[in-house]
Amino acid sequence: MTVEAHLATLEKKHGALEQELHVAMNQPSVEDELITDIKRRKLRIKDEIERLRSSTH
C-alpha cells in the first residue's frame, strides 16, 4: 500500500469516527466512556495522518 493510499484510508476512518462521535453525542443514553473512546481513536488516527504527511515532505 502506498503512503497516499494509507493516508486516504486513515482519512476515511477519521471521518467515520467523526460521524460516530456526532451520533453518540446527540444520544443522551450514550456513556461518557464511549465518547471518550471515540475521541481517543480519532486522535490516534489524526496523529498517524500527521506523522505520515510529515514523513513524505
Rank of each mutant, 00 (worst) to 15 (best):
A8N: 12
L7V: 00
A8Q: 14
I35N: 04
A8S: 09
H6D: 03
A24W: 04
I35Y: 02
E4T: 12
A8E: 14
V23F: 06
H14T: 04
E18T: 13
R41Q: 12
G15M: 05
R53K: 15
D32P: 12
T56M: 14
R40A: 10
T36V: 12
L43H: 08
D37Q: 14
T2W: 04
T9V: 09
V23G: 02
M25L: 10
V3P: 01
I38H: 03
E18M: 09
A24N: 01
E4A: 13
H22E: 14
T56S: 09
S29M: 10
A5R: 12
K39G: 02
A24Y: 07
K39I: 05
I38Y: 06
H57F: 05
E18N: 07
G15F: 06
R40T: 15
E18S: 08
D47V: 08
K39P: 00
G15C: 01
R51T: 09
T9S: 14
S54H: 10
E20I: 04
I35M: 03
H14P: 00
H22N: 11
N26I: 13
S54T: 09
Q27S: 01
L17F: 12
T36K: 08
E18I: 06
R41V: 02
K39S: 03
Q19S: 09
K42P: 02
K39R: 14
E31M: 10
K46D: 02
